[in-house]
Amino acid sequence: MRKDIILHLSALLFLFLLEILGIFSEYHQGNFARILVLAAYGVGYNILFGYTGLLSLGHALFFSAGLYASGLSIYHLDYNIEQSLFLAICISALISLIIGFLALRTIGVSFMIVTLMFSQIAYLSILYFGSITRGDEGFVIQQSSRVFLSMDLSNPKIRYYSALLIFSLCMLINLWIAKSPFGRVLVAIRENSDRALMLGYNVKLYKLFSIIISGTISGLAGACYGILFGYVGASFAAVSYSIFPLLWVLIGGAGTVLGPLIGAIFMFYLIDYASDITDAYMIIVGVALLFVTLFARRGIIGELRFRYYKWIS
């Protein structure tokens, strides 16, 4: 138990030291800021997929809900960062509740397709309401709006720390869930939902809570992505942004706390490297997906846990 907590805190400390000791070049500092926010999105995805065993193909809906809630409120209504973040959290929680309520009426393959379709509806709606959302081209959140407690969030250092803060928050929530009775019920549902039902748990309600937590964390990550990097656009609502978190989680290890981070770092740099070799760099995503399903079902952290360190959360 203690070893486990020390491991996760030292991972965060390591990420903090990387910055404070100035080990990063500017380029990698920027990359890691992106990766941390995306990993927070992965953490959100993992709660539903890794812990509860529900495979969603539509999480881009939640990510873009947060992204657009905060972005549009800043762009059209002159909200400040605090207000827009608060709004983004409320909206993504509400949307997760509604989607969860509807989608949980289905199971298995139908659940995957329903989530995919919901996210497609969101994507098309962003295009349809182009006069508000500026459709495909998206819009810019000006540097002057991106100030939080008089800190300029476009400053690379501050941006990195903010991203780390968001990721830490999401990761610690995840860790807490993993250790809590609530999390153990989720895992029980994943392993055998019929048995969980017979043990007297309200399986549907647990699943609904799981979607709400997962969707809200994803929405928060989306909001932060827009605020930290200054751009809101429809490509974040497209199918590929539902596939990415699935891939990160699979590679890092489904149902592990550090998995999404490891998976996101790994994939980000793999794609970055591949894009220097070929224009068809997305082929890496395909190969990685096949590799994990065929040969490495547990992912990196999952494999470590299975073989050596049973105590890892």
């Binding site: 070049s25 500017e26 380029y27 081209e137 998206g138 810019v140 200054g230 751009y231 656009g233």
Partner: peptide, 24 residues
Amino acid sequence: ANQHNCDVAFGTLFSHVVIGSAPR
């Protein structure tokens, strides 16, 4: 800017790419 240490950047046609890139 950060990896290749370019002096300036240039190019690109589609307006949404320009609008997405210009703030950076």
